[in-house]
């Protein structure tokens, strides 16, 4: 059971590192949000499942699943709201400079 939770947590961490790199490197709000919101929720999902495995069956696992479902619903909503606001207020997507 512990090995399983370690595997899931390490996988979640990998996706979170990818999200952090995506946030720093990508050139534009839209691509950054694309990187962050997707990998973030996946990384959070995997880590929470890993911690649920660590907790074993019980009340805590149920609570962790509640947080998991909550996070899985909230993250896309927040990302969509901010990026729609960005698009509506006139942020132009990044074009490759014809250098």
């Amino acid at each position: 059971m512990d090995i399983l939770s370690i595997i899931f947590i390490v996988a979640g961490l990998f996706f979170m590192i990818v999200a952090a790199i995506g946030v720093v490197r990508l050139p534009d709000v839209f691509s950054r949000s694309h990187a962050v919101s997707l990998t973030d929720s996946l990384g959070a999902f995997l880590m929470l499942v890993g911690i649920a495995f660590h907790e074993g069956l019980g009340k805590n696992t149920l609570k962790i699943l509640v947080v998991l479902a909550l996070l899985y619903i909230l993250n896309p909503v927040i990302a969509h709201a901010t990026i729609r606001a960005a698009f509506r207020s006139g942020v132009k997507p990044w074009q490759k400079k014809s250098s």
Binding site: V23, V29, S33, M47, L48, L71
Partner: peptide, 17 residues
């Protein structure tokens, strides 16, 4: 501004974890 809002959302997700 939207990069900042994006960063804050990311930080709060990390804080939950």
């Amino acid at each position: 501004i939207f990069d900042r809002v994006l960063g804050l959302n990311g930080i709060s997700t990390k804080a939950i974890i």
